[in-house]
Nucleic acid binder design. Structure first.
Length: 476
RNA sequence: GUCCCCAUCGUCUAGCCCGGUUAGGACACUACCCUUUCACGGUAAGAACCGGGGUUCGAAUCCCCGUGGGGACGCCA
């Protein structure tokens, strides 16, 4: 009882936000960001994040895309408190959370409008009736005569844009002639029924909002707070980012081995910032600082380079075993890639060591198969240009001979030991470490980029190193 | 065409609300340093207040107009 008394004002004012996607296509960056901004607000305020599936378009819905929504949200770390059950997310007593299962509710609400004279039937469809004087006018753009209604402007108090006024001056369809309710109706009905307090959505919905506010008024319900967030523009060319644009799909980043934390961090910064210079920050800090007034008003262009950089930052701080596991997962997906296949057949500990060696060197997991190829096969390619350059400088043949002789008895127990050994070798001829490094690298990897040569020696082991040195020596 | 939103480096942005800054940071680009290659890291450089009016001693900041960008105008969501 006492607890209830203390909690009741909290419950009364609890923020309830929703993300309401339709399963009609791949899950893309824009949707993810809208979900994220809602999720953050719920977590920031200690409110409720609702997932509602807007599957009223029977033609275009698919179960596959529905699953993709669940998977993508979960992958990004956005759990939902109410909604369809999936893993540990979902549940709640405002369901069902799929609009395809809420037909009775919509019918009841339409009934209310019909009874109140705020809706009528025409051409087999049900229309919402605006209040005011009517007159016919020819619409040049749509090339037809339409009935306009003289109405006062609808006022939207937007949390991001301030006061926005827009005149809604035409009745609109709320139930199609086939009996299916349309988006505007179900969206508003569900937000009323689910007691949504804040509608955070893309700015592309701002023009729809006048319809929605009119519907709220028709139902005699005070509209919730609106927050229209800026859109993400495509990287190249004009217009907003759409599912078909390069880099638009969440699934793609998942497949490419991006870290979800990095993608989320990047997405947060597209239209929001903590107010200082911090960019890479833990999600807990973002939740703490995130708020609606901090959201920008202007659209943001997507930048894959900045995302890649953010991903590298996160990758760099991954524990080696986690990084190795992620790499293995990525390699396993590359079924067409011979290098990836070969790597997977290698000993697990060896694979892990190779990845640990490469972790600080690459920008993304996707670089790994090509970057580490020579660790897993003796049949690796040699870069002709690098070969000419290395073999044309100093006396590489002599260095190779020395290395071949040195390897069998050298101390390979640690990178430091190998370094010491090589330095001692160089000192005998008053040469530098670099004189051995370049030719050794060419011999064992066929290129001039890669991890430290000492690390490569240690991981490859004496046998392989010596064989490769001899092979180069024989063909040089 | 009508309506709505927006406008700081190439890009993401701080500063704007509450007028006085060498207009700051990050990505990208360039140079140098570090170094055992390549990266990472460090330092430096270049790079912006869309234009025009107004208000003011003073405007990136407030107001108006233009221009530009974006969005919406479906029995799609």
């Amino acid at each position: 009882m006492l607890i209830l008394l203390i909690l009741s004002p909290l419950i009364m004012s609890q923020v309830r936000v929703r993300f309401a996607p339709s399963p009609t296509g791949f899950f893309h960056i824009g949707s993810a960001r809208t979900a994220l901004f809602n999720w953050l607000y719920a977590r920031h305020t200690g409110g409720v994040f609702i997932l509602r599936i807007e599957d009223t378009d029977k033609e275009r819905n698919s179960e596959q895309f529905l699953q993709l929504i669940y998977e993508s949200l979960t992958w990004l770390g956005m759990n939902w408190d109410e909604g369809p059950k999936y893993g540990t997310s979902g549940g709640g007593d405002h369901g069902p959370y799929r609009q395809s299962e809420r037909g009775d509710i919509y019918q009841a609400y339409v009934g209310k409008l019909l009874a109140a004279g705020r809706a009528y039937e025409k051409d087999g469809a049900i229309w919402f009736k605006l209040l005011g004087e009517r007159h016919e006018v020819f619409d040049e753009h749509r090339k037809k005569t339409v009935t306009k209604v003289k109405t006062p402007p609808v006022v939207i108090e937007d949390q991001i844009r301030g006061r926005v006024e827009r005149v809604e001056d035409e009745d609109f369809v709320i139930v199609r002639s086939d009996g299916n309710p349309v988006f505007h109706l179900v969206n508003v009905v569900d937000d009323i029924a689910m007691q949504v307090t804040h509608i955070i959505r893309g700015e592309d919905h701002l023009s729809n909002t006048s319809k929605h506010v009119a519907l709220y008024e028709g139902f005699g319900v005070k509209p919730p707070a609106f927050a229209h967030i800026p859109l993400i523009l495509k990287q190249n060319g004009p217009g907003k980012m759409s599912k078909r644009d390069q880099g638009a799909l969440i699934e793609e980043y998942q497949k490419r081995g991006y870290l979800p934390e990095a993608l989320v961090n990047f997405l947060c910064l597209l239209g929001w910032n903590p107010g200082d210079d911090r960019e890479k920050m833990p999600i807990a800090d973002i939740i703490k600082l995130y708020d609606l007034p901090g959201i920008n008003q202007s659209n943001a262009r997507f930048d894959d380079k900045k995302l890649a950089h953010m991903n590298m930052l996160y990758l760099l701080e991954q524990p080696a075993d986690k990084f190795g596991a992620r790499a293995r997962e990525y390699f396993a997906q590359q079924t067409e890639n011979a290098a990836a296949k070969a790597a997977l057949t290698a000993d697990a500990a060896y694979f892990g060591e190779v990845m640990a060696l490469s972790q600080p060197k690459v920008k993304g997991v996707e670089e790994l198969p090509a970057y580490t190829g020579y660790f897993f096969t003796e049949d690796f390619a040699t870069d002709a240009k690098v070969r000419d350059k290395v073999m044309g400088k100093g006396d590489p043949k002599a260095r190779l001979a020395e290395l071949i002789e040195w390897v069998p008895t050298a101390d390979f127990s640690s990178d430091a030991a190998i370094e010491e050994g090589l330095k001692a070798l160089a000192a005998k001829h008053t040469l530098g470490f670099g004189d051995y490094q370049s030719v050794a690298r060419l011999a064992v990897s066929g290129t001039n980029v890669g991890p430290s040569i000492t690390g490569m020696f240690r991981v490859l082991g004496r046998g392989r190193v010596r064989a490769r040195l001899q092979k180069l020596s024989a063909t040089a």
